[in-house]
């Protein structure tokens, strides 16, 4: 039985754990405190209940949660075959978590880094087995999105890439191969778009509603960039733009001050109930 550890029970960890359990994998979900894990289980239960409404299969929340155990701290992952890391998009946090994982995991375990923009090679260099570390950029909401970016780091072994592709296929995901560069393909473009859309609101050129309406109405996008920001997390957008800015040392990635202010004010989007829009529930 393949055991998969999931580190970080935020927006992405919740979706990844749900997707793994739905696909029959024994899943261990880890975060830094018990309350976060309790909230994560409640969110997974609610998402299972609403699965059919969202275009997915009918799911029994108890059956899905039955395959997920939770734990505070990565020690619980000693027996994991794979670990999917989804902690905050912040280099210091990622570095510390990968150093801990390196101490705890079996040397055969594959470490999958889920990040918006941090280069995989940089994360892989933290531990002693860079050949077992690979990047997968999952899309949000994870169970509803069938395609991911698969990113080998400089030292990633071909075998690591192939077993990861198999795991992804078991999760119902098709992997698009992408080379390691900050932001990969998706966020190199998307983060700039969202950042520029935030500038439009910041400068008073248009309201968030109007910006999104232009993208939906004129371009036929299913969602505008600012609704997308609320779905991703306004804080995560800011951190990702900061990573790009730092990495490329290119002023075209300068983060919009509005994103900073919203992050400071706790307007993180759907997950906190308010971002560019206000939500009735946390979701």
């Amino acid at each position: 039985m393949t055991v998969v550890g999931v580190v970080g029970a935020g927006v992405m960890g919740i979706g990844v754990a749900h997707n793994l359990a739905q696909s029959g994998y024994e899943t261990v979900l880890v975060d830094i405190d018990e309350q976060i894990l309790t909230d994560a289980k409640a969110a997974i239960s609610r998402n299972c209940r609403l699965s059919r409404l969202m275009g997915g299969p009918a799911l029994d929340p108890d059956e899905i949660l039955g395959r997920i155990t939770t734990a505070v701290g990565v020690e619980a992952l000693a027996k994991a075959d794979f670990v999917i890391e989804n902690v905050t998009e912040n280099w210091d946090i990622k570095r510390e978590v990968h150093a801990e994982l390196d101490r705890v995991l079996s040397p055969e375990a594959v470490v999958i880094v889920n990040t918006s923009a941090i280069p995989i090679t940089r994360v892989a260099a933290v531990g002693s087995h860079p050949e077992r570390v690979v990047g997968v950029h999952f899309m949000n909401p994870v169970p509803a999105k069938p395609v991911v970016e698969l990113i080998p780091g400089f030292h990633t072994a071909q075998e690591t890439v192939e077993v990861t592709r198999q795991l992804l296929s078991g999760m119902g995901k098709k992997a698009v191969d992408v080379k390691d560069a900050s932001g990969f393909v998706s966020n190199r473009v998307l983060m700039l778009t969202v950042n520029e859309a935030a500038y439009l609101v910041h400068e008073g050129v248009a309201t968030a509603e109007s910006v999104d309406e232009v993208f939906r109405g004129c371009f036929g996008h299913p969602m505008g960039p600012l609704e997308t920001a609320d779905l991703i997390g306004v804080d995560t957008i800011l951190y990702s733009v900061e990573v790009l800015y730092e990495h490329y040392a290119d002023s075209k990635y300068r983060p919009c001050p509005l994103l900073k202010q919203m992050t400071d004010a706790g307007l993180h989007g759907r997950k906190t109930g308010r971002g560019f829009y206000t939500y009735d529930n946390k979701g």
Partner: peptide
Amino acid sequence: GYINSLFAMELVMFIEKTFGLTIPNDELRI
């Protein structure tokens, strides 16, 4: 064109809270 299934989820939460009811799973259809 601008209301998607993510909003359906909010509608469920809103209806359950506002009208004090739990929608059974077989009624959770789009």
